[in-house]
């Protein structure tokens, strides 16, 4: 008898049915297993240029922004810190590739297990977020290309705007806080649920 391989599961796997029951105006999708690497490097130094060559895009230097290519997204976390995420690359390959590019002139750490990704979309997505987030989410200022580290429902998150119409976001939340944030999102969505 052979041992069964453990199946990969995300922290919100058991929430799938509850997310599916939400109305079309507030759609929540859990996206586990996104490779994430924390990158620390001098943005003006040669290592940043080598990292940009590896990623295919320059590191964003404006606060609270992100840039992306077909395969990776680079989120600004600080003046010398970025979060590189990719659903297409294996965590170890992403970390190893970045580490080769940095070549000792900075630090690269695989943090794929630290956060899990929630997709939030729909006509009421911004209303749901506004109930628990103090920053200005109007699409005039928080639109595609913006990624803020802030509090959502008292939980630290990275909030990523995916479009210019305030109807599609990604929420990166620590895995241990994910069930709490999921229940908060379900509660916040009830006022937009037709009875």
């Amino acid at each position: 008898m052979t041992a069964d391989l453990l199946a990969r599961s995300g922290p919100l796997q058991s929430w799938t049915d509850r997310f599916a029951a939400l109305p079309d105006t507030v759609q929540v999708v859990a996206t586990p297993h996104v490779a994430m690497a924390d990158l620390r490097v001098d943005p003006a130094g040669p290592a940043a240029a080598d990292v940009a060559g590896f990623l295919g895009v320059d590191l964003p230097t404006a606060p609270s922004t992100y840039v992306e290519t077909d395969s990776v997204r680079v989120i600004w976390l600080g003046p010398d810190e970025w979060l590189v995420t990719s659903p297409f690359r294996a965590p170890r390959a992403l970390e190893a590739g970045l580490r080769d590019a940095v070549a000792g002139r900075g630090a690269v750490v695989d943090v794929s297990g630290q956060r899990t990704t929630l997709g939030l979309a729909g006509a009421n997505a911004r209303d749901v977020l506004s109930g628990g987030c103090a920053i200005d989410l109007h699409p005039a200022v928080f639109r595609r290309g913006a990624a803020a580290q802030t509090l959502l429902g008292l939980t630290g998150v990275v909030l990523v705007a995916l479009d210019d119409t305030a109807t599609s976001y990604e929420i990166l939340v620590r895995s241990s806080f994910a069930p709490y944030l999921a229940s908060w999102l379900l509660d916040a969505a009830t006022e937009h649920t037709p009875t």
Binding site: P63, S64, G78, A134, Q149, T150, L151
Partner: peptide, 17 residues
């Protein structure tokens, strides 16, 4: 709540600091 202007992120709620 009081807003504090982070030199990088801009005005944020006091609870973040």
């Amino acid at each position: 709540m009081q807003l504090i202007t982070c030199p990088y992120c801009g005005p944020r709620e006091e609870a973040e600091f």
